[in-house]
C-alpha cells in the first residue's frame, strides 16, 4: 500500500507519516508512507491520501487507483470544513490536531481495501497448508506437541511447534509473553499483574520474568489507542 500525507506544516506531516507507518507495521500491512507538501502532485498509484484542507486553495484532484481500493482522509483546523469536504466524499474527516485513535479507527475501516498488501502466515493444519492474515491472529499457544492459533474468527490446531511458528511472526507485532504463549500486541487492551487482556476479552497469561518486556513492548504500541505521540524507538 502506498500512502501519502499532504500537509503544509512539515512537522505535522512527518509526525502523521510516522504514525501511519507505525500503524501499518503493527497491523502487518506492507506499506510505504511518504510525506509531501500540497503543491506536489499526488502519485497516481497512491491508495491512501491524508490531505490537509488548511491553506490549500482547492480539494485534492485525486481519484485513486481503479476498483475503489483507496481511501481519502481529510483534516482541517476548522470543523466547518467537514461540511465542505462532502464535495469529494472522503472516508473520514478529522479536526486538527488529528487524534491518532480516530485516525487508526478510520484506517482500520479501510483495511479490506488493501487486502492484497497484508502479511500472512502459513501453517500446516490437518495435512494441508492454511493461510491466515497476521492482523487476525490474536494469540497462539503450545498445544499437544504443536500449537493452537486463535484468530478473530476461529481456532486452528497445527503440528508445528510454537517456537517454529514464532520464528515466522514479525517481532514488532508478536511477543512471546510466556513459555507457552505468543500474543499480538495490536490487540492488547490492558496488562495486569499476570495476564494481558485482549480486545475480544481473552486473558493471556504473562510470565513473571517476561512482564517487564511485555510492558515495554506494549507501551511502544499503545500510543495508538491513547492519542499520544509515538515514543522514540517504536517498532517499525
Amino acid at each position: 500500500m502506498r500512502g501519502v500525507v499532504c500537509m503544509r506544516d512539515a512537522r505535522e506531516r512527518e509526525a502523521l507519516c510516522q504514525a501511519i507507518q507505525l500503524w501499518a507495521g503493527l497491523i502487518c500491512l506492507k506499506a510505504e508512507i511518504t510525506a509531501q507538501s500540497p503543491e506536489e502532485a499526488v502519485p497516481a498509484e497512491a491508495s491512501l491520501l491524508l490531505w490537509d484542507m488548511d491553506g490549500t486553495p482547492a480539494l485534492p484532484a485525486w481519484e485513486g487507483p481503479a476498483g475503489g481500493r483507496w481511501a481519502l482522509l481529510l483534516c482541517s483546523s476548522q470543523p466547518q470544513a467537514a461540511i465542505e469536504s462532502y464535495a469529494i466524499h472522503p472516508n473520514a474527516f478529522f479536526q486538527k490536531p488529528v487524534p491518532l485513535a480516530a485516525l487508526c479507527q478510520a484506517l482500520e475501516r479501510c483495511v479490506a481495501r488493501w487486502w492484497e498488501d497484508l502479511e500472512w502466515v502459513e501453517v500446516l493444519c490437518g495435512g494441508a497448508r492454511r493461510r491466515i492474515p497476521l492482523c487476525d491472529l490474536l494469540w497462539a499457544e503450545s498445544y499437544q506437541h504443536g500449537a493452537l492459533l486463535h484468530t478473530t474468527l476461529e481456532s486452528i490446531q497445527t503440528r508445528e511447534s510454537l517456537r517454529d511458528l514464532t520464528a515466522h511472526l514479525p517481532e514488532r507485532t508478536f511477543f512471546r509473553c510466556q513459555r507457552g504463549y505468543v500474543v499480538n500486541l495490536y490487540h492488547i487492551r490492558g496488562i495486569g499483574q499476570t495476564s494481558a487482556r485482549l480486545a475480544n476479552g481473552a486473558e493471556i497469561p504473562i510470565g513473571r520474568r517476561a512482564r517487564g518486556e511485555v510492558l515495554e513492548a506494549y507501551r511502544r504500541s499503545r500510543w495508538i489507542w491513547e492519542s499520544a505521540a509515538p515514543p522514540e524507538g517504536s517498532p517499525t
Partner: peptide
C-alpha cells in the same frame, strides 16, 4: 482444488469481517 478453494473462502470471510468493521 479443495485446499485452494477453502483458502479463498476463508480469506473472503476474514476480509468481509474487516469490511463490516
Amino acid at each position: 482444488d479443495f485446499p485452494a478453494l477453502r483458502d479463498q473462502f476463508i480469506s473472503w470471510t476474514y476480509r468481509k469481517a474487516w469490511a463490516r468493521a
